[in-house]
């Protein structure tokens, strides 16, 4: 008996299997990694400690991107403060200079804008790297997948993987101890 979800006429998105606990998912991930698959993912209700290594993934690039965001914020503040104070509208207040020596009084705004743009970069960078926001996804066609945000764990190997073949992936996931092995179709 072959389980499938989504529109059977539509192209296959991949094959997914269910696991009952974080430990089983972790070990399944190690084996899928060692089998050489590339387009696959594990799904869990919470981030699992050490899963990046188990999947053979490097550190997220987000940190470097946020650095650029912070730099943008800092330079924005420098321009915003020196532009008007030193050039557009020089005004001597409380005997403070308007040239470079006034920089201590500029620190708070430089700091705040660095933080502000970094935070925006972190959140929107994370969303873009995750392919979010999106309204639908082939995996949502599978009813059991709803449990991924509750207490169940899943693996999905995508049809786009060079080593993918429905038959062998189903057998492979079964050999890893996956249950409810299901072929997921698109809409």
């Amino acid at each position: 008996m072959k389980n499938s979800a989504g529109n059977p006429e539509a192209p296959v998105f991949g094959v997914a299997a269910e696991f009952q606990c974080a430990r089983d998912l972790y070990h399944a991930a190690e084996k899928i990694r060692d089998a050489g698959f590339r387009r696959w993912d594990v799904f869990s209700p919470f981030p699992i400690h050490g899963m990046d290594e188990a999947m053979g993934m490097k550190r997220s690039l987000l940190g470097k991107i946020v650095f650029l965001g912070g730099l943008t914020g800092f330079l924005t503040a420098v321009t915003l403060e020196f532009g008007p104070t030193s050039f557009l509208y020089p005004l001597i207040v409380a005997g403070k200079p308007t040239n470079l020596f006034t920089v201590p009084a500029f620190f708070p705004i430089m700091f705040e804008l660095t933080i502000l743009i970094s935070a925006f970069t972190a959140v929107f960078g994370m969303l873009i790297m995750n392919g979010l926001p999106r309204l639908n996804h082939a995996l949502f066609n599978w009813d059991r997948f709803k449990k991924v945000t509750e207490d169940k764990f899943f693996v999905a190997i995508e049809a786009g993987d060079p080593k993918f073949s429905e038959r062998s992936v189903r057998d492979f996931l079964e050999s890893l101890g996956g249950t409810n092995i299901t072929t997921i179709h698109g809409d």
């Binding site: 594990v42 899963m51 997220s60 994370m126 995750n130 945000t149």
Partner: peptide, 10 residues
């Protein structure tokens, strides 16, 4: 979706 490829960036 809670995939680890999302969690790591998250």
């Amino acid at each position: 979706r809670g995939g680890n490829r999302q969690w790591r960036h998250y």
